[in-house]
Design a protein around this nucleic acid. Structure first.
Lengths: 341, 341
DNA sequence: AATGTTTGTGCAATCGAATGCGCAGTGCTA
DNA sequence: TAGCACTGCGCATTCGATTGCACAAACATT
């Protein structure tokens, strides 16, 4: 820890000036030096076990090659693959990622961002965008390159990478419709989340396009994206009048709750009622029956967000971009033809 | 990005020397200054929107308040809760965590460690310890505080936090034995992983203690911790002579593979044969039948590893420690009394 | 009133690497 | 032989915050 050799030690050992040693160790600049000097410096560095002090370099260069990532809760299954995508892209350019969880708490998110700004990170990827105020977000984006992931903030001019919720819901609706379903219910996600809102709106649009009028009793709002809420909402649907033949849930957890409610009611899925999820989380293929769902390319979204951020950092005049990633329909066994009985 | 105010700007605005401003902004040192000066400096800092440059401070202080974390693959369900534990502990002390995946590749792990050393991180938590060479690990631990998580390296003097595999297996064996099972099989994990080995040895010890001789046909080695391998090994057990009445699998995935094989063979779990897993991963309670398993306190292991590391960093003379975390038996419906027919 | 003790603040060096500028030396041309 | 271009490398400064030491002023002590 103490006797760590520094650049000037290497320079002394190689009998050159520190500046010369610096250039010799930088592949881009080594060409401007005579090959023998470069070789001599390299040899000395190896022998001393020299390793560049990235902190000193960062101070001088005004750039840390570190990116801050904030997620609401890493244990939510969508984030690990996203983070892998981020890290895979960043590490290719020699960047490292600092990761923190906001726990859905705006105050915690603010505190994390403050320490990130102190640390002079080169950019931020926010999968947890609780700064819902467009102005605050703009102010942040003016200080440091920012890319939102899986979230958007209307009217803020910040780059974002999101899944195409509308396309996913539309595809699922078409799938169910193609199986003959006419009474399709929707368990909507919390309406204070962008995905909850977007999916509900997409559902309404699809329903309008496919089949005329919409029965209000077929739309239930969940308070959270949880199994319990899925269960509660499904029971509500089953007990109310105008029973649906299919339920399009706003995410996999809600759909799993549905399955429980359906089984409990002595009904069969998909025989009596079809159920679809959203996200294709791990294990979605392992529940009974395996869940028909929409796969969101989480890894690629993370990768793309990191790519956008690196572009933003490199660009002389940063351009705000909005990238929408196409989801895909995964048909398993929780959806089937409508039964007429 | 450019016109970021620095300490000297704050000092100038408050009409004091930079050193005074530095002290005024440090809660621990502000007491040595007159209250009016402190107030004046604080006001100036706020007004200018000053934020401390952590990089410059790190250079001066020779400590970055950043910790490097390496996991083999974040998408493995055990790591997200571990990381949350790590981060929760670290953030309490103002530390941030840098996270990277090694993909089980020693070369990648080495490269990550090299960049971490360049960055002068204050410590490392390695959940991916592919440096199996004790000497190399010792050398690393001599340069920077290190805590191994969920892994150990024999003969290396490095701190480690691990789950108590032996206790877990013993508890599970006792549970099965208590249900009347006498022919208990073991699907062992890969023998090039420390958990695979430890659990197999614990199984053998428990079998010896509980019931005399051990039937070699009741122990099958899996090549990987995967569902397919669990399936393969279970079929092997079912087809070979001396069919078991219970299978103690080395992890949940292997156990899930067993369930598939048992169902396929027209048998019932737990009616004909009991199955137990290990890890209590998310969804272990959602398979059919819900899995009896051993819960490893992943979050607390991460938290503890971070705590150990902080101790190591603070200690004048670091002490190597080995912390074993107690698992708990989670009884669900994949295990039941032995059937005599 | 003179000396001793706090208290409050400034000075200047330090951390380690990067780099614009400029100097010395070599080789070429007129 | 003077003039010029070019190559190779060193000098000194910069990045921003921290801190040991020095010193002045205010206060207490005898």
């Amino acid at each position: 820890m103490s006797g760590r050799p520094k650049l000037s030690d290497v320079a002394a050992a190689a009998n050159v000036h520190p500046s010369t040693a610096s250039r010799a160790l930088d592949p881009a600049l080594a060409g401007r030096l005579s090959p023998e000097v470069v070789e001599r410096v390299r040899r000395a560095a190896n022998q001393l076990g020299y390793s560049r002090n990235a902190i000193a370099a960062s101070l001088r260069m005004q750039r840390s090659r570190m990116i801050g990532v904030i997620v609401p809760d890493l244990t939510n299954t969508m984030f690990p693959p996203m983070f892998r995508g981020i890290e895979d892209r960043l590490s290719a350019d020699g960047y490292s990622a600092i990761l923190a969880n906001s726990d859905f708490r705006p105050a915690k998110e603010k505190a994390i961002i403050a320490t990130y700004l102190d640390r002079r990170l080169d950019g931020l990827i926010l999968a947890s965008a609780h700064i819902e105020d467009a102005e605050q977000m703009d102010a942040l984006a003016r200080r440091v390159p920012v890319v939102l992931l899986n979230r958007e903030i209307e009217k803020a001019s910040v780059s974002a990478v999101v899944g195409d919720d509308r396309a996913g819901v539309t595809a699922m609706f078409a799938h169910l419709s193609g199986l003959g379903h006419r009474r399709i219910a929707h368990i909507a996600g919390p309406q204070d989340t962008s995905t909850g809102v977007a999916r509900r709106e997409a559902f309404l649009a699809a329903a309008r396009e496919h089949g005329g009028e919409i029965d209000d009793r077929l739309i239930v709002m969940a308070e959270t994206f949880s199994e319990q809420e899925g269960y509660r909402c499904a029971r509500h649907l089953l007990e109310a009048g105008g029973k649906p033949t299919a339920i399009l849930a706003a995410n996999d957890w809600l759909a799993i709750g549905c399955l429980t409610a359906i089984e409990e009611a002595g009904l069969n899925c998909p025989g009596d009622i079809s159920v679809s999820g959203f996200n294709d989380m791990p294990f979605a293929d392992r529940v009974r029956p395996p869940l028909t769902t929409i796969r969101i390319p989480h890894y690629r979204m993370g990768f793309e967000a990191a790519a956008q951020l690196l572009d933003l950092i490199a660009a002389p005049t940063p351009q705000v971009s909005r990238t929408v990633m196409a989801p895909s329909l995964i048909v398993r066994q929780s959806t089937g033809p409508v039964s007429f009985d």
